[in-house]
């Protein structure tokens, strides 16, 4: 009895969280007049919403931009973040503790404080309307550094000492010994960084005005608010579905990693 109640609540929850997505995807295949209904199966299957999206906005170009920006930032955070994390956890040098404090301090600063001056910096560097404005500010992540540091600290010192005996220097140790051991932290930092960058809208809205350089979320946002969709629900939802699809597919395959990684953002 109690079990049945549990299950019915959990099932209700599943409907509440999943049904809207299913409805959204099915709505994109419905004729416009049919969208305002609960049903998931279109009486008439049509691709016209998607045809209009592809005709009205450069969605593929923006997909490319988003991939380029997100992959570059993720690669940079993994590469540089692990370097800094290694130096913080395994090397001694003057200013190390200061750096740790600075990282913790900067992580506390709300972005509301820096976003306007950061935009002005982009203007001064002539980086607005360029990939640099989208990529450069995200190339390092204090949170990523801390995760790397924490992970590297747990690696046995004997392993590093042995490598040193073999004549490896610190750079070689990092890339040849530590990196291969670091899959879990790489996945965590990688997923968090990639997702945050992929979903970011505010910063692209601020620094990019040129349609050809817009990221996918930005393109879809502007499409949704600018009236380009001419009050057609199906077209807006189709654009949203195209934006959600890559993430939903990735999530369906790697959901465990997603949940664990994103939950760790809370564990500062």
């Amino acid at each position: 009895m109690k079990r049945a109640l549990h299950y019915s609540i959990l099932l209700l929850g599943t409907i509440i969280f999943l049904y809207p997505f299913l409805w959204m995807i099915s709505a994109t295949f419905k004729p416009e007049l049919e969208i305002a209904s609960f049903g998931l199966w279109p009486s008439q299957f049509t691709l016209s919403s998607y045809e209009q999206v592809f005709a009205k906005i450069p969605i593929l170009r923006s997909l490319f931009n988003s991939l380029l920006v997100s992959l570059s930032i993720t690669a940079s955070v993994l590469f540089f973040g692990s370097m800094v994390g290694y130096s913080l956890s395994r090397l001694r040098f003057r200013g190390r503790n200061l750096m740790l404090m600075v990282i913790l301090f900067t992580m506390m600063i709300p972005f509301q404080l820096t976003i306007i001056p950061l935009y002005i910096l982009m203007v001064k560097l002539h980086w607005t309307d360029s990939y640099m404005a989208l990529i450069a500010p995200g190339m390092m992540s204090g949170f990523g550094v801390l995760l790397f540091r924490q992970f590297f600290q747990a690696i046995p010192q004997s392993l590093i000492d042995a490598a040193r005996m073999d004549g490896l220097n610190d750079v070689q140790i990092l890339f040849k010994i530590i990196w291969p051991l670091s899959r879990p932290v790489m996945i965590t930092v990688g997923i968090i960084t990639f997702m945050n960058t992929w979903n970011e809208v505010l910063w692209p809205l601020i620094v990019i005005r040129d349609r050809a350089l817009m990221t996918m979320p930005q393109t879809v946002t502007i499409f949704a608010v600018s009236g380009m969709a001419e009050a057609q629900l199906g077209v807006k939802l189709a654009a949203a579905t195209l934006l959600a699809l890559p993430v939903i597919i990735a999530y369906a395959i790697f959901q465990r990693y997603f949940i664990e990684s994103m939950a760790s953002t809370g564990l500062k």
Binding site: L68, L71, S72, A75, S76, F79, Y131, I135
Partner: peptide, 11 residues
């Protein structure tokens, strides 16, 4: 990773 980074530098 290196491919990604060189892309960044290229850009």
């Amino acid at each position: 990773l290196f491919a990604g980074l060189s892309l960044v530098l290229l850009l």
